[in-house]
């Protein structure tokens, strides 16, 4: 578990980079076929058709913006922060999103009818209730998922930049937020 929450502390940087690059390519390809689009580094949506450009560029910009945020914050805190570690963290951070994309394997979440059924019918049938429970369970799951993502960033950034003080993490959070806003604006204007 320790290694999963902070692989940068334990694994060789080059081996980790190769693994991350392979997962990045496989993840992007699977996201295309699972009709998943990424509008920011911490966001994902399911489209009703394959959006090649939006998925590939969205994922690339999301990963790049995370990398720049980690690198900039790392360099402000510790001049010895390395590019390869920030690259590894940014790509590792994105892996759960590729796995989450498999929720849409049957294109259930791309189906507009599912959402319309939930929104328009006041009296739910058994099937609609199941769908609603599924959607709300996924929201809860996503919150838990974001907490784990936070732990990954906290621990890995500690290794990358030898961050210790609260101000170090405050700098990181502010820079990440700025890059999330910038990347969202860029991806939405594609």
């Amino acid at each position: 578990m320790k290694k999963l929450l902070n692989p940068i502390e334990f694994y060789n940087d080059r081996k980790l980079l190769i693994a991350n690059l392979i997962i990045f390519l496989v993840g992007t390809t699977s996201a295309v076929f699972l009709q998943t689009t990424f509008e920011s580094p911490i966001d994902m949506h399911f489209s009703d058709k394959i959006e090649l450009k939006l998925t590939i560029l969205g994922n690339f910009i999301s990963t790049l913006s995370l990398f720049l945020a980690f690198f900039l914050a790392g360099r402000i805190i510790n001049k010895k922060t390395r590019v390869i570690d920030c690259l590894n963290l940014s790509m590792y951070f994105r892996i759960p999103y590729y796995i989450l994309a498999f929720i849409n394997i049957s294109h259930f979440l791309s189906d507009e009818k599912t959402i319309l059924n939930i929104e328009k019918n006041y009296v739910f049938s058994e099937n609609q209730l199941i769908e609603m429970v599924l959607v709300y369970s996924m929201i809860l799951f996503f919150i838990g998922f974001l907490i784990i993502q936070g732990i990954i960033i906290y621990r890995s950034f500690k290794t990358i930049a030898n961050a210790k003080k609260t101000t170090d993490y405050l700098i990181l959070v502010l820079i990440i937020l700025a890059f999330i806003i910038i990347s969202t604006l860029i991806i939405r204007n594609l």
């Binding site: 502390e9 334990f10 060789n12 010895k80 390395r82 290794t159 990358i160 030898n162």
Partner: peptide, 18 residues
């Protein structure tokens, strides 16, 4: 050192800095 100790380079560097 990192290879011998079975940990990553930044971890060893942080230990040295500390």
């Amino acid at each position: 050192m990192a290879a011998q100790l079975g940990i990553s380079y930044p971890t060893v560097r942080n230990q040295l800095d500390d």
